[in-house]
Design a protein around this nucleic acid. Structure first.
Lengths: 241, 241
DNA sequence: CCATCAGACTTGTATTATAGTTGTCTACAT
DNA sequence: ATGTAGACAACTATAATACAAGTCTGATGG
């Protein structure tokens, strides 16, 4: 495969920026040019690429430096959906729609590395009204001990016999198919917010996959990007009127 | 049965494209021509065949590379989608649709605290194809110095004469109205990812408001929750009355 | 002590040049 | 219809160079 020089250099600069402490200055473009054995133009192009990603910044006559707090994680302490609903004086409920051991679909098997999985489909309720359809795939060995009553009364992460740590979720949109439309009480074809989440344990191995579908007219996802002062808006998914 | 050479080559290219990571660059047509012992025209026919299937793409003077589908945005940094495009070997472009000084709509005025604003509507292009409609509202006093050429060639946050610090994004979904559908080249009523962003300066004062609309089938947002206590919900949920 | 200024060093922005790549065409062979 | 060979234009990445403009430092002179 052919390689693009300035992308290689950009990758090296990214690592360096993440390793260094915020505010520290990078070598001059001339020095970097010698170090990478590339022309100053090429080095600059790499620097500008990383700058546009927000990791570094420059001041004319001064130099390049690692940007201040490029990645502050503000998504850390967030109450569960249940707590927020109860806090708002609403009653959170769950209704089980499916509870089956099935052969894992390809995209699930690829991530979890399990042939058979427990698939649970639930409808989340706020004061009796449905606001989310959640499907969870869980390796069969972990799901063996779970009952329908368990998954109806407890969040999934309390039930799995593993210590969970992190998650990656991808947020997208879809049109409502007939099944989800009926469960959520919205017209077929209306827009849905879709969150696919892969939850990993303390070793970083994927443990759970889940798909959350929200009616778009009631839900929004709020993300704070690096601030100095805390904003008035909390981070997370929220229901809108 | 006689075998068609360029179809054999196309099959080999498909395998290679699926094995390689998106954005990686294929060998040049001349090199592939040597490798498959076929003329450049034949190799090209194979490449164009695979391109029309959406697996790979090319830029004149640059080369062939594995296409990216769907387009993923990472939310941790205050970077632009353009930076991620360039980092993937694609070419980012902009087309101005509107450039007007108007009275601020209520929800904009409430946040920016400005009566008159500059409203700029742009279509973002990836290798010539539209992938986003972006509307930016900017207080008139800040927009006074900006020209259409400015906003066509630079990201907005580079043009504003304030040091920006953070942003709050609200991600939701919508159905495509006729205007946006036409600009994005998607059917009316198809799902869109909507991202409303309020950008603030170092003092925490709101400076810019923007709305980004993405076709749902091409775009996803990715959020990492590294050391979060997982709940059954994507992150947190907030009810708004 | 303090202000000032020259010079070294830095980024920002051009220009020119070259090798390599895709895009496109024509001519010809099987 | 399919494949080969070649030529040319348009574009890209990279190099080399030059110069403008901003920043820092240290010497100088009061």
């Amino acid at each position: 495969m052919r390689s693009i020089r300035y992308q290689q250099i950009a990758e090296a600069l990214r690592e360096r920026a993440l390793a260094a402490s915020p505010g520290s200055v990078l070598p001059s473009e001339a020095e970097l040019s010698q170090e990478f054995k590339a022309s100053r133009v090429t080095v600059r192009r790499a620097l500008e690429l990383v700058r546009d990603e927000g990791l570094i910044a420059a001041r004319q006559g001064f130099g390049w430096f690692v940007a201040i707090e490029p990645l502050r994680q503000r998504l850390e302490r967030l109450g569960t959906i249940e707590a927020q609903l109860e806090g708002s004086g609403m009653h959170a409920g769950r209704r089980i729609v499916e509870f089956e051991f099935v052969a894992a679909p390809a995209h699930v098997a690829a991530v979890l590395g399990a042939g058979r999985v427990l698939r649970v489909k639930r409808v989340n309720l706020a004061d009796g009204d449905p606001f989310a359809v959640v499907t969870v795939w869980c390796p069969a060995e972990l799901g063996q001990k779970l009952s329908m009553a368990d998954v109806e009364q407890h969040p999934f992460y309390e039930l799995v016999d593993r210590e969970l740590r992190g998650a990656t979720q991808t947020i997208g949109a879809d049109s409502a198919e007939s099944v989800e439309a009926a469960l959520l009480g919205v017209p077929v074809g209306s827009p849905l917010l879709r969150c696919r989440r892969v939850t990993t344990d303390t070793d970083g191995h994927p443990v759970l996959m889940s798909e959350h579908l929200f009616p778009a007219h009631r839900t929004e996802f709020v993300v704070d990007l690096p601030h100095d002062e805390p904003s008035s808006m909390p981070t997370g998914l929220r229901l809108v009127e």
